[in-house]
Amino acid sequence: MSELAAYNFAYLDEQTKRMIRRAILKAIAIPGYQVPFASREMPMPYGWGTGGVQVTASIIGPDDVLKVIDQGADDTTNAVSIRAFFQKVAEVAVTTHTGEATIIQTRHRIPEETLKEGQVLVYQVPIPEPLRFLEPRETETRKMHALEEYGLMHVKLYEDIARHGRIATTYAYPVKVHGRYVMDPSPTPKFDNPKMHRSEALQLFGAGREKRIYAVPPHTDVVSLDFEDHPFEIQTFDKPCALCGANHVYLDEIVLDDGGKRMFVCSDTDFCETRRAEGHTGEMLAPSQEAAE
């Protein structure tokens, strides 16, 4: 039973990688279109990043530098687990620094630091179909995409406005890619949507359980759906990051005690740490700095 332990570089066999690369190429050729692929059973559960892991496993080489984030952080348990997986089966270099990585696998966030040419951002996607909660049937939604029949989505957004006075979608906010396909950006907060627009990096999306791969090639238009009188807007925060003082970044709310005391800190841990290393401080760090003086 010793052959049990012998796995190929990056876990997947070469035939499977070739099949996935073909799907990726097709996805790049038709931006925003969901390409069906023969998703494999992976050694982690469905819904925990099997799509992203398969995409990463298919494109990663020995020279790559990998970064894995979950909720923007490198140290969340699932990010740790996926990073450890690739260290084990591909022995690649890993990093937490966005700028150093050639491949960044992510769940729910796009790094704050602007991505550059040559970088690949791999998204883990739970439900790739943006129309799924409007129409549960795959046979129907594929037809709707083919006919560019997106009225239902606009009606949904309009109903939000009629009912709540605003579009009540805060994450997985639908976008139109290259003026053609409506695409689910994965459950990233809509705060991150503008970062996808004409990004220099290649963006790949893998949905393992749903067996779909889609892509946004570099420099592609990614437009969040909206109305003239209700333009798309991103979340804003009242205060800067309490640790690094950054403005215009996405913040996590940390509950400090049972008396309702809270603080807001960068969700992107690498961004926050880099800023602090550069000497930026937020309000929570300032007192200890003074004490040291």
Binding site: Q71, Y171, F191, Y250, D252, S267
Partner: peptide, 9 residues
């Protein structure tokens, strides 16, 4: 798994 980014939104 953590969903706090979306929950924050």
């Amino acid at each position: 798994l953590p969903h706090y980014v979306d929950f924050q939104a």
